[in-house]
Design a protein around this nucleic acid. Structure first.
Length: 476
RNA sequence: GGCGUGGUAGCCAAGUGGUAAGGCAAGGCUCUGCAAAAGCUUUAUUCGUCGGUUCGAUUCCGACCCACGCCUCCA
């Protein structure tokens, strides 16, 4: 079954396949601006893209996945200068942190992860072509702007009316857009190249228009074209990038590369709310992986929570939701363990089934796979996974286990991850002595004393629970 | 103002012109001295409101109410 997605460009659900049969599926996803730790909102988008890539691979396609690193912009320059370190040193630090977090969340490493600063020449070449073909103009301050009036299709992706953009003089925050700051012909013309300013410090490059740096949008167009060709299969990003970023990319790529469209499919994921509110610094709800780890949540639980809602639906990220994810993951682990035991398959052998290319036809997990192929419907697929486990009438076979392994690959879930990572903390000597004392009291049927001792142990921060031949201690 | 999305049980969340998946939580039962854990099980006459189309609508149409997103900071 071929996967489908909702294509923002056509506003229809469409079947995904490479443009040319037999070629890899080429996808470009807008990556992070590395000026600080990425938050869960960023990771929702990357996790959804990761699931999409895994579904494509699971369905038998080879995927070339390009995700850029934006290592030059206002924020990176400002922050690096504030810290008194070079832009390179600053961005590399946050790039490493980003990669570390991606690894924890089980995100597959992109095929290519190009940095904007290492593709200045490509960006300049693209801007030059735009100037040459009359789609861009330079201003006296050494900047270059894209002239939107030369591109009638502008606004096609986001459905925004170009004429209204032109007259837009106030942004959503009610602030006046500084129309004359850069001497633009039109307020909606966007920067391809920014002339050097004092606050850029020593972060500038030479160009035909003088010293400066690339604009926000040109890097993606240039790098996508370099690594995936003038026209590739899919372009993804958060919904906020639909306009203006992707709209601008389309304008740049079409006008400089002279193609019908840079990407056939456009894939946008909805934003995240936190406890019912928009994420923002002022509300203090911009959680990072480290913030959540400090509260005791594991990356796998976070991944589950991030993908458990449909990607085109705004997700309300809550601590309750994280607890739910934890329980659901644990239930999945128990169900799988019982199944593996019944079929005498070890966890190690099961791990070998977690790969691309599983067969789903005729298995109990076929409905779940079909749901994933239907516009990445993860919530439906999860429901069908639990239903399949609950259905005892169908006796599971090795084929079912293999299919489940395929689903785990597609979702990027490792149900045993937290079990592996869980450190069985050894209780201190005095706690163990108390527990031993309680065990003896219990054996002597002195239950009042046993319960009193349990209270003492719990007060000390440990929980005791009995097994057939003894007791276990767990830190609360 | 323009464009767009959504309102389904206590919470999260699928779904369909033919009578509501799943997860969490909660209750009951089994097990246990009691717990914990585990297993089994129960829980929406109803899908924002009001109309319309239809044999039949949560699903289609219209109006309204509410929430949210984008309209050059944002994943």
């Amino acid at each position: 079954m071929n996967p489908t997605i909702f294509n923002t460009l056509t506003r229809k659900k469409e079947t995904l396949a490479p443009a040319v049969a037999g070629e890899p599926f080429k996808m470009y996803c807008c990556g992070p601006t590395v000026y600080g730790p990425a938050h869960i909102g960023n990771f929702r988008t990357f996790a959804v893209q990761d699931v999409l890539r895994r579904i494509l691979e699971e369905s038998g396609m080879k995927v070339v996945h390009v995700r850029n690193i934006t290592d030059v912009d206002d924020k990176t320059i400002r922050s690096s200068r504030a810290e008194g370190v070079s832009l390179k040193e600053f961005t590399l630090k946050w790039e490493r942190k980003f990669h570390e977090d991606c690894g924890k969340l089980g995100l597959l490493v992109p095929t290519v992860e190009p940095r904007a600063t290492e593709h200045i020449a490509e960006q300049i070449a693209m801007v030059e072509e735009l100037v040459k073909s009359g789609h861009a103009y330079a201003t006296p301050d050494g900047s270059v702007y894209f002239k939107i009036s030369t591109f009638p299709e502008y606004g096609e992706l986001s459905g925004l009316d170009k004429s209204s953009l032109k007259t837009q003089n106030v942004n959503s925050a009610g602030e006046a857009n500084s129309a004359d700051e850069y001497e633009r012909d039109s307020v909606s013309d966007f920067a391809l190249w920014k002339g050097r300013k004092p606050e850029d410090g020593d972060n500038f490059w030479k160009s035909p228009w003088g010293e400066g740096r690339p604009g926000w949008h040109i890097e993606c167009s240039a790098m996508a074209a370099k690594y995936l060709g003038k026209s590739f299969d899919l372009h993804g990003g958060g919904i906020d990038l639909c306009f203006p970023h992707h709209e601008n990319e389309i304008a740049q790529s079409r006008c400089s590369l002279h193609v019908d469209t840079p990407a056939r499919f456009w894939f946008h994921s909805a934003h995240l709310m936190v406890e019912g509110q928009k994420m923002s610094k002022s509300l203090g709800n911009l959680y990072t992986l480290d913030d959540l780890a400090a509260k005791g949540f594991t990356p796998m639980q976070i991944r589950f929570a991030l993908i458990a809602g449909h990607y085109r639906q705004q997700l309300n990220f809550t601590f309750k939701g994280l607890e739910d994810a934890k329980s659901a993951l644990s239930k999945m682990q128990k169900s799988l363990t019982a199944l593996l035991d019944a079929l005498k398959i070890s966890k190690e052998d099961f791990a070998k089934f977690v790969h691309a290319g599983a067969r789903f036809e005729g298995t109990d997990f076929e409905p779940a796979w079909n749901s994933l192929c239907d516009d990445v419907n993860v919530p439906k697929a999860l429901g069908e996974i639990f239903s399949a486990f609950a259905d005892k009438s169908a006796r599971k076979t090795l084929a079912d286990i293999e299919a489940f392994g395929g689903l785990m690959y597609a979702l990027g879930l490792d149900v045993f991850a937290d079990a592996h990572d869980e450190v069985i903390e050894e209780a201190p000597e005095e706690i163990r002595a108390l527990a031993q004392e309680r065990w003896q009291a219990k054996k002597d049927k002195n239950f009042a004393a046993a319960d009193a001792l349990r209270g003492k142990i719990e007060a000390a921060g440990w929980q005791v629970f009995d097994t057939k031949e003894g007791f276990n201690l767990k830190k609360i």
